[in-house]
Write a protein that binds this DNA or RNA. Sequence first.
DNA 1: CGAGGATGGATTCCTAGGAATGCATCTGTC
DNA 2: GACAGATGCATTCCTAGGAATCCATCCTCG
Lengths: 145, 145
Amino acid sequence: MSHVTPAFVDLVRVETRLYGAVNARLRAEQGLGLGQFEFLEIIDRVPECRVLDLVAEVAITVGAVSKAVDRLVEAGWCRRVAHPGDRRSSLLRLTPEGEARLAAARPVVEAELAALTASVPPEDLARLAATLATLRADLEAAQGS
Amino acid sequence: MSHVTPAFVDLVRVETRLYGAVNARLRAEQGLGLGQFEFLEIIDRVPECRVLDLVAEVAITVGAVSKAVDRLVEAGWCRRVAHPGDRRSSLLRLTPEGEARLAAARPVVEAELAALTASVPPEDLARLAATLATLRADLEAAQGS
DNA sequence: CGAGGATGGATTCCTAGGAATGCATCTGTC
DNA sequence: GACAGATGCATTCCTAGGAATCCATCCTCG
C-alpha cells in the first residue's frame, strides 16, 4: 500500500501558497482578508445564518468565529439580528456595505486563483475538484456522526 | 469557463479538517503538533538544513519559523549547530529525542490520514496526489522566479 | 410544571503566525 | 581593501485561532 502522507503534505503546501497569495491580493486591493471574504460569502449564501452555521462550514472553534463576527460587525459589513423564536441565538445578516465588499471581492478571488492554477490542464483541475468535493463531503459526514 | 473558487474552498475545508484531525491525534498520542512534526521531518530530510530552508518549504515567514525552531530547541528535539563557513547561519540538527519523536509520530500521521481518506478510491487518491504535486511544483517555481 | 441536561454563544487566557525592524555577517565592485 | 548592498536570522508588536469556562436559554422527561 502506498502511503498518503506525502500527498497530504503537498495538499497543505498548495493550500498555504494559494491562500497566502489570494489573501495578500484581496487585502491589498479590497481591504479585507480571505477569511473575512469566506465568512461574508457564507452569511450571504446560508438563509438564516447563525454563528454555529459558520462553525460547521469552516471547522474552526466557536470562540474564534464569534470574534471574527465581532470584527465583521465592527467593520460595518454584518449585523446580528435577534433570532425570532430562540433568544440565545442571533441571525447574521450582511449590511449593504458587506454585500458590496463581497461583490467586489468575488472576481478578484476568482481571477487570482485562475492565474495561479493556469498551468494545470482543465480536465485535471476538474478531477481534482471532484475528488476534493467528495472527500470533503465524507469528512463532514464522518465528523457529524 | 468554469470557475475555480468553489474547488479552492473545498481544498481549504479538506485541508482544515485533515490537519485538525491529525494534529489532535498526534498531540494526544505523541505530545507534539503536526506543525512540529513537519519541521522535524524537513530537518531530518534536508542535509544541511537552515532556518531559510524551512521557510522555503512551508511558506510561512522567517520570524514564525525562527520562533518555531526556538520551541523545538526548547523541547530538546533539535539543536542549532554553528555553520562552518557562514557565521550568520546555523545548521539545524535533530537530537536523538527528536529523531525518536519523529519516528514514533510518522506511523500515527500515516494511519490517521489513511483512515480519514479510506472512503476515496485509491486511483482517485493517486490522481489527486499527482495533480497536487505538479501544482505545488508550479506554484513554487512561480514564487521563486 | 419543574429539574437536569443540552444548546448557542460570549469571554478569557494562551499559543502561533505575519509585518516590520534590527543587526551581524557576507559579497561584489571599484 | 573599503564600502554598498544583499543575506540570514532574531526580536518586537500585532492579529488570529484553540481550549476552557461561563451564562442564558431551550428542551425533555418524569
